[in-house]
Each structure stands twice: as C-alpha cells, then as structure tokens.
Write a protein that binds this DNA or RNA. Structure first.
Lengths: 251, 251
DNA sequence: TTCAAATGTGTTATTATGAAGCAATGTACT
DNA sequence: AGTACATTGCTTCATAATAACACATTTGAA
C-alpha cells in the first residue's frame, strides 16, 4: 500500500487503502506481484487509495490495471485488515522525507489506516509489471519464496492464498491464470500449487473433465520432453455457468 | 449504520462504519435483528463507527454486544460496501436536525461512507434486543418478511445470507443459533431456511450424524404434537475441529 | 379406539471417489 | 535402428457417498 505520492489528500478517502494480491502462474509456479522501493529493505503488495468519488471496486481495478496493464481481470475482495497498530510504525521520518511529503500532510499519512484486501488472478504472459516510478522495483515472485514484507502484508498475502484455497472447492479456477491453450498436467500443477499437496493424475483428469468446462483441442503441446500432452481450452459459456452456480453443492 | 450520535468525531475513523447482520433462529424461522428510528419510515441494520484506537473486529463485537447483550458470539466479516453513492441521500436536514448534529459536524456525517459488513449468529433466547435510545425500535424480523431498509442495507443483508449459504457447504452451523439441546428436525429446518429448499429428512439425518459433531442425548423433547423427537447437543470439541478443518474437501 | 402427522430405521440403485494397472507416445542414449 | 525411460491417456475395481423411497413407531387429537 501507499506507493506513489498522491496529488491532493482531500480527494481521497481518509484512513483507507486498498492492497492487491495479484497472482500469476508460470513455470508451474504460483507467482505474486510484489514491489520494492529503494528506501526500504522490505517488499510490499501493490496498493493505492480510494478517490472519494470512486467505488472501492473501481479503485481496485485501477490499481490492478496500473500495475499489470490488463483489463477485465478476475478481481475479488476478500478481507479487511483493520488492526489499530497495523501501520503506526510505517511512516517514519526517513520515509516521509523520501516521499517529500509536505509537513501539513504528514498527519494524513500517519493516521490509522484500514486496508481492503483484493486478490486478482491474471494471465502471467499478458501481464506486464508496471513500475510506479523509476526507482521502484516490481516483479513476479514465487509464492514459496516471498521475502519479508512491510506492515501486515504477509498476513494479507496468506489470507488471500487461504481464500483461494477455499474457493477452489466452490468454483473452477484456471481461466484467468492460464493461457488460452493449456494442458491438463499444467492445470493440475496449478491446483496442486494452490492446495500445496499432490493429486492423483488419473483421478484429477476424470474429475476435471467431468465438470464440463473443458474443450479438448485437436492439438498437442509441442517442444516437450516425453509424450506430448493434449491441449485444452475453457468452454467460457459453461465456465461462467459453473462459476455462478458453484460446484460441490454440499447439501 | 449511523444509529446514535457519537460523542466526538475526532475519536472515530472518518468515512468508515460497521453494519451487523445479526441472525437468530426461532419458531423455525431465521430472524434478523433490525432497528427503526421514529424519524424514518425505513428500517436499518444495527451498526456503528470505528474508534480510531480500536481494531475493526473489536468495534464489531461492541456493536453486537450493545445490541444483544451477548458475548463470545460467532461474528464474521463478510464484505465491504463502498459504492460512491451509497449514503449521499441519507443525511438530509430532517435527520440531521433530529439527531441534533451541530453545524460544524454535519460534514463529518454527510461525507462518503464505506461500511464493513459483519454477520453474527446468536442464540435467539439468550439475545435480548437492546434499544439505543427510548425512541428507537429494535426487533427480530423473519428474514422472509424484511421491510424496506435504508441505504444499501438490503444488499448487505442479502449478501450476508448468501455468504451464510455458501459457508454451510464449508463448515457446520447451528452451535451458535440453536439452544444447547435441540432436535434433528429443528437443525434441518435451520438448514432448509438458510438454503431456501427442502431436504430429505432421512438423508439429512444420516449426513449430519455422520459428520460426528452431535451427541445423542438420552432425552426426548416434551410437549410436542406427534411423536417426540430425540434431543441432541453439539460435541463442542469435534465441532470446533470441523469448523477449523472444514468439511467437503472438494479436492 | 382410530387417525393423522411426525419421527426413527432400513433398502436399493446410482454416482462419486481413491487406488492402481497398462498401453501409447515422444525423448534420449547406445 | 533399437532400447530405456518418463510422461500421458484410458481403464478397472473396490469402496464410500448420495438420492429416492418403504415401513414401522410414537404421540396428540378426534
């Protein structure tokens, strides 16, 4: 959160920020888009503030669009983080100085902040990480190798992953994370990564195809070692239906 | 939201409120605790503001405690509502006058508000609706007969119910809504009410007992028409376990 | 005493799941 | 070219979960 100086405090909702956990999938790894400013040793989630004349969801879309260049992405609010002490150590003099915050606006930045967590699923290859300014670093980091994060961003990230893991039981996932054409083993790796455990190849195939959201293409993946796996695409129509109605109706 | 005048604006998080959807179960009906002030024709959800020195969850617990007198309740954050125009028509002159808001504080109340939705599950018989002031009305209303609500409170209520419906597939429910001793048909009615559809008696019994969270008591319900149903209680130990680990692991 | 309405228990057919076998395919190496 | 090997795709089998339904039991009321 709080990257980039904002123009006029009065135009933004006070004490409220948005943080986005942006997931991508590449090389069989679940990646997260993280930022680092030169004046801090820790990384952070991309975030922003909420303009007083913008819906919070719109503000979140903006953050995402600014950071990935993608539009029409899967974006979902998952939790609000509002512990009293979550940001009271964040804006010390060094940081305020670096950001060139005028004295009269210091109070605005150091006030108690509540942040709304959004998580996004994006196509790794379509998303081009966008720096906010020339000194910033932004990059995809394997979720297993996330460095130390500022504030409670680790907690936010963990909660996002946990939410994703739960939602895997309620809806299909993959349409937003995989390229248009993909293989079943790739999809399985995605599931395994999110769930953090191995699944049986053969049972996975049966179960995933049985949902009825996949189109088997008349094409195989090329340039692979061993047997070439078949390519699939999502049946967007049915995918949306299942997304809406959910799977695994327990009762 | 926004019931009861607050003492000093500066002590509260600006532009942020909390609204609670408090569910109870009685007479085989799912009830919601709603408020009405005499100066408005519409009802509203109980809510409040967030003191700047309090965690948001704590503030929500306070709202709940003030309204029901109960502590240690099941309370869960489920969504944030942050449309720009959600409260711009709310504080007109009549309302501001009724609340005796001083001129210099009007701006605080009419600013754009974002609200965090919490839903609570409480034991109907233990909860005693508490009025905020002598002119307020507070009462349990069947969720099927909810009157017109202020602002976007209907949307908030619907979303809460929808969340509850989804969570039914992920965790057991009932411990917080039913008295200590209850019958299977009662529990089934609760499930049916939340899901808004009939379930097969016999299959429900098999499935619910199979989870392993129920203790069959050596006691039958008295003073009932027809055959007296057996009484059950929850095995709190196992209930908490299942609550933590979830049920219906889809993958 | 009989009836109606609800509860408690059991049966059966179908479907979903977990575990595992085996042939087919493509790469790499001899 | 021939063989080893990793990986994919399809299948079987035993078991568990689910849906649909039958029947006997209990209780208050007619």
């Amino acid at each position: 959160m709080l990257q980039g100086v904002i123009e006029n405090n009065a135009n933004y909702q006070p004490g409220l920020s948005i943080d986005c956990v942006i997931f991508g999938f590449h090389d069989n790894q679940l990646k997260v888009l993280l930022l680092k400013t030169p004046f801090e040793s820790k990384w952070s989630l991309p975030g922003g503030f909420v303009p007083i004349d913008e819906d919070i969801d719109t503000a979140a879309v903006t953050v995402l669009n600014v950071r990935t260049g993608i539009e029409g992405i899967f974006l979902r609010q998952f939790a609000v983080f509002g512990k009293v002490k979550r940001n009271d150590k964040h804006f010390n003099d060094t940081v305020l100085d670096y950001l060139k915050i005028p004295q009269q606006e210091v109070k605005w930045f150091t006030q108690r902040f509540i942040t709304i967590g959004y998580y996004a699923l994006v196509d790794f290859l379509k998303a081009v990480p966008q720096k906010g300014n020339h000194q910033e670093t932004i990059s995809w980091i394997d979720h297993k190798e996330v460095p130390e994060l500022i504030l409670d961003h680790k907690e936010i990230l963990d909660k996002a992953l946990d939410t994703l893991r739960t939602e895997l039981n309620l809806m299909p996932i993959g349409y937003n994370l995989l390229p248009e054409k993909f293989t079943i083993p790739e999809l399985q790796k995605l599931y395994e990564t999110i769930l953090d455990r191995k699944l049986d190849r053969r049972n996975f195939l049966r179960k995933i195809t049985h949902i009825g959201i996949l189109n088997k293409l008349d094409e195989k993946k090329s340039n692979v070692a061993h047997k070439a796996p078949n390519l699939y695409s999502f049946d967007t129509q049915k995918y949306q239906e299942v997304l809406k109605n959910g799977l695994n109706q327990g009762w």
